[in-house]
Design a protein around this nucleic acid. Structure first.
Ligand SMILES: [Mn+2]
Ligand SMILES: [Mn+2]
Ligand SMILES: [Zn+2]
Ligand SMILES: [Zn+2]
Lengths: 186, 186
DNA sequence: TGATTGTTGAGACCTGGTCTCATCTAGAGG
DNA sequence: CCTCTAGATGAGACCAGGTCTCAACAATCA
């Protein structure tokens, strides 16, 4: 169920688990970002950053809110929804898996950019990173006179496990069409 | 305000407007598709196909429903929402510009596959088609043991016009951040 | 023609996300 | 420290796509 997969060198690879220091760094980065536009670093925002970085992997906003509640912090829905875009602009978060239903995010702070491959059967998410895509995208944008500011790129398919399961033990075919939706089958 | 733009050769370029024949072809194709799964070709479905093919370019579902109403056909929301995925599976429609807010569709029947480049400023949509992407995507899916079933690929940025408008006549910078959302600024 | 089974449509319902507004507070200045 | 003000918060109303329900309906076929 955990997406995982982090194939890039350097970084948090060896000793320190991503805890403390990463929060501190993010906080500093965010503070700078906020200062630049005369915004304020509040308790709520601090709490949200902590909660966010504590979650490894992709998470839906709803879960983040639950986390905050659990911690005793009363982060209101509105505040969270207002803060996440700020964190994104500040480069601390990035949107992930934006197909349909719910937005989800993931930490961006020490990571390379990447996109996602999602299994329609079980919701598994694999990350991929391919410089060629990035280059070609810039090329295309330029060709049309656009200044490229971002992209959504997501592949959907069936993972190996789900393919195997498909030609299953001959049991009744359950519900062949409509297996489940991308959102990791809620 | 209308996204528009359809730069691909052939098709509706010279003589025949995409009317009649295209509808007939789609109808036949859909009939075959339905037969295969013991579904029925009903009046509502016929009407929806016509309305759909009448719209050139990308359209949000809401507008399609309005079209139907206007024609006197009372296509219910539920029916339309149920039919569009069928038409998509049948290859008559394809999803388009699936970022955030609302789904939109476009005719797929005589067209090559393509993806989209969207202007964050004015909502303009440009289509692009690049075989290299398709190949690399298959490559990546394979590398992870996935059977690829589709993808969403959308570039976002600022079109030339909007960039020009940016360094505008020195008037007050309006509302620099939050220009508008992708959805063609509602 | 009748039986069977898929289809329709009005509207209730669901839910992620946004807005409102009274209240609070970060933080610059004194 | 104290004050002042513009930004921030949060409870909850609100909004809007989209889905579900269910009784009435109709395509197909024996
Ligand atoms: Mn990721
Ligand atoms: Mn298109
Ligand atoms: Zn799977
Ligand atoms: Zn533009």
């Amino acid at each position: 169920m955990r997406p995982g997969l982090n194939n890039h060198p350097g970084d948090q690879a060896i000793a320190a688990p991503p805890g403390e220091s990463s929060v501190a760094q993010a906080l500093k980065q965010f503070e700078r970002f906020l200062a630049e536009r005369a915004l304020r670093l509040t308790a709520a925002r601090r709490a949200i950053i902590e909660a966010v970085l504590e979650r490894a992997g992709h998470f839906p906003i709803e879960e983040l809110i639950a986390d905050l509640r659990r911690r005793g912090i009363r982060g209101s829905k509105a505040t969270v929804y207002r803060t996440l875009p700020l964190l994104t602009e500040a480069g601390i978060l990035q949107e992930a898996v934006v197909t349909g239903e719910t937005r989800s995010y993931e930490a961006a702070i020490g990571r390379e950019h990447h996109d996602h491959l999602v299994c329609l059967g079980c919701g598994k998410v694999v990350e991929f990173e391919f410089e060629a895509f990035e280059i070609l995208q810039r090329e295309i944008a330029a060709r049309h006179g656009f200044r490229l500011e971002g992209h959504h790129h997501q592949l959907v398919g069936r993972c190996a496990d789900c393919q195997r399961r498909e030609v299953a033990p001959a049991g009744p075919p359950v519900n062949a069409e409509h297996p489940n939706r991308v959102g990791s089958g809620r």
